[in-house]
Computed example of a mutant assay.
Amino acid sequence: MDKPILKDSMRLFEQLGQIKSRSMFGGFGIFADETMFALVVNDKLHVRADSKLTRQFKALGLEPYVYKKRGFPVVTKYFALTDDWSADSNRTLTVAKEALNAAKEEKKIQSKAKPNRLKDLPNLRLATERMLKKAGIDDVESLEEVGAVKAYQAIQSSHSAEVSVELLWALEGAIKGTHWSVIPQTRRQELLNKLSS
């Protein structure tokens, strides 16, 4: 599937850091050094907006990207840039830098405001919290201490049913404060190697 807008955007953003793309929200998220700040979906470049950028974008008549999750619309923080905007690479790069800085700042704040309950961590639900508690991991601090692999093994040994490997990514994401789908393939392989060693 040829996505010229994705390739062109990634090339343009190379000066912002190590640029990667991953499948997200029905399109492709663009990351600089593991922080997502842009999205290519419906053949348009979308840029992440904080409250300041949201005001600017709305004043220009730009719209946030909306996707459906379980039949319900979800409004994202990503605004579609118009064609005239996308044609101006300097303008696009400037706004992308602003979006990236805002996304990094938000990430920093989120990591400081860690939840107390396991179920409130990214990727985890009440059922996962119960599984962890049954395995002897009662709080966020304990989970961070033992790490994803040992927590996964503890759940495996205390759980009667088979445990999916996706739980390993979910636990790693919970510890890192990110969605499991953004865990790099190299890190997943490291976790699997630790698991089988």
Rank of each mutant, 00 (worst) to 15 (best):
A170L: 00
S23I: 08
G71I: 06
K44G: 09
T35N: 12
K44P: 05
F28I: 03
A113M: 15
Q15V: 14
W169E: 03
H159T: 15
V66M: 04
N123Q: 03
L39C: 00
D83E: 15
R22G: 05
L53G: 04
P64R: 04
W180L: 13
L121F: 07
K150P: 15
V74H: 13
A103V: 14
S51A: 06
K44A: 08
L192M: 14
A102N: 11
H159L: 00
V146E: 01
D83R: 08
E106R: 15
A113R: 15
Q153A: 13
S9Y: 07
E34K: 09
D8H: 01
S86H: 03
Q110G: 03
K134D: 03
L6Y: 05
L53T: 09
V140S: 01
E63L: 14
M131E: 10
A49C: 07
T186Y: 14
P73T: 00
W85F: 14
S157P: 01
S196D: 11
F79W: 05
R55Y: 01
L124F: 07
T128S: 14
Y65A: 01
L191R: 13
V41Q: 08
S196L: 13
T92L: 15
E63M: 13
S160P: 05
P184D: 08
S86K: 10
V149D: 06
D88C: 07
F37V: 01
I109E: 06
L121K: 13
V163N: 10
L171A: 11
Y152H: 06
D33P: 01
E162Q: 12
W180C: 13
M10G: 04
R22A: 06
